[in-house]
Amino acid sequence: MCPQEISPRQRRLRAAIVLALPLLAVADLGAILWARSRPSLSSVPSQALRDAFSASYRAGDLVVASPPSLATPALSLLGSALPQNAFTFADPSRFERALELSLGGPRSRDLSGWKQADEKRVGPVRLRTWVNPKPLPSRFDLVASLQPNDVRVTHGPSPSAGQPCSFSSSNETDLPPSSPLPWSPRARFSCGKDPAAFVGAVALEDRRGILRRCIWIASGSDTVRVTWPRVPAGTLLRTAAIVAAPLAPNPNAELRVIVNSALVAQRQIHASNTFEPVDIAVSALSAGGELSIELEQRSGALLPICVEATLR
């Protein structure tokens, strides 16, 4: 075909197509080079990081890592420099100070609205100290208080859920490969014969990769109730709940909050839930009392739900 036979419009279109191909190749190359320049964990000087962390850490600090996909391995770089009682994978709103390990510089979504107090660079890691301008102190951490002396766990058909779940702190039980946890925690309340049917504190991540310590609630029956008979005074319950097996089809569950035998709130739990906190007013607890979280499953398959909750 001769060039003269092409109209100017066709010619421009063809020129755009022809030019787009090498440009696409260059863009592909650019994407490769950009990806190669991203910082890697293997280039982190571990000992220097541990030393810098130990110098900045104060008891009671929240420790976070970003990006979320590298949070677990990045915190593992700290090894024994991370104290056993350090707070990790927790809702940040109650903390006054946080230490962040950022690989490559992105800021953790958990700390939006916080003020940066300090930053150190250790290889590709930025160790930042953050201060919370409006900390909302926690009066009672329901996840941390999941102990046999502090809590009563029952399950059974709705509405009574009257069968007690037995506490054990012996060996873990392996869970099926489809479970998001490889095994149950040692300290747990077993609700039925199924090893996956238990109530216990675990760390799970939601669809966005946000990790939280939460109460795994699963049972062979449709309803589980966790009751804290003596909680201190508080006015606000901050909760977040996710379906622990997000790929399961159409879970339909309802979470109810009961204060001194009166229902104060109920929420539907869907597979699309994330650890986005929801505040529930619990004015009936202004002088303390009994707090229950009840989970009722209405779909055929009984799926575990993980609930994070603190009383403010």
């Binding site: 293997s42 571990s46 593992s76 770089l77």
Partner: peptide, 8 residues
């Protein structure tokens, strides 16, 4: 305590 990351 977290397991120690040795290599990636």
């Amino acid at each position: 305590t977290p397991p120690q990351l040795l290599s990636t």
